[in-house]
């Protein structure tokens, strides 16, 4: 058709990332508000009429933040699309780029949830950059070790909650890499990911001690069959 132009389709990754960033800020802000209302005693310290007024304003602000959070989440999920955790996801999908970055994003979100870490900001763009910077290794474990370093260097997990230990990011990435290497069947992904997260947490000292790619790859070889 002469003169026909394809409709402009924005790259969904930066848009999703922006909406997730907004949601993260709102959640962080919501927590601060909740702490202020219930935890710090600041409002209780005010004289009675001022305390009631302050609490009422803060609760209203919290409600607005929650609505915006839900709107941002819905928009990110429904309008811009996303990926599902798929039983088919494997490390050999490295070259699928954005699709694989979306899987890493979702898997990291679930692992952090399993580890009781929230909120944290997970960057799908950083995952995409790490994927493009990673060449396949000699085997899946070698690829996983390279990708682990690249993901951590790109700071795929940011602004992690204060309750998390220093190694939480490395444990979460290790868990996702273990999961990608584990033998999984249909409908097995949630179980496998939870098992990978629990196993990674149990192996925290070994993960911290794996100083280079070779040691990390050996750790993957040893433990991927046990997810």
């Amino acid at each position: 058709m002469p003169g026909h132009q394809a409709p402009f389709l924005p790259d969904p990754v930066p848009l999703r990332e922006a909406l997730r960033g907004l949601r993260h800020l709102l959640r962080r802000g919501g927590e601060t508000l909740r702490d202020t209302i219930t935890g710090t005693g600041m409002t209780e310290a005010l004289p009675r009429p001022a305390a009631s007024l302050a609490q009422s304003v803060l609760r209203e602000a919290e409600g607005i933040a929650r609505q915006m959070d839900e709107a941002a989440s819905d928009l990110a999920k429904t309008v811009l699309g996303g990926a599902d955790l798929s039983a088919d996801a494997r490390l050999s999908d490295l070259d699928t780029g954005p699709a694989f970055a979306a899987v890493i994003y979702l898997a990291l979100a679930r692992v952090l949830d399993r580890l009781g870490i929230r909120p944290a900001f997970i960057s799908e763009s950083a995952a995409l950059r790490a994927l493009s910077a990673t060449s396949p290794g000699a085997d899946d474990a070698g690829t996983a070790a390279r990708l682990t370093r690249a993901l951590l260097d790109s700071r795929v997990i940011r602004d992690i909650g204060p309750e998390a230990g220093a190694e939480t990011g490395a444990i979460a990435v290790f868990a996702v890499m273990l999961w990608l290497q584990s033998g999984r069947g249909d409908g097995d992904d949630t179980d496998a990911l939870a098992a990978a997260a629990d196993l990674a947490r149990a192996l925290a000292p070994e993960i911290a001690a794996a100083g280079d790619e070779a040691a990390l790859a050996q750790l993957y070889r040893s433990w991927a069959p046990h997810v």
Partner: peptide, 17 residues
């Protein structure tokens, strides 16, 4: 306690190995 169970499991495998 699932984290404890996972730790027991991992330690068991290490001991076997």
């Amino acid at each position: 306690d699932e984290p404890r169970l996972a730790r027991a499991f991992a330690n068991w495998l290490k001991a076997i190995e």
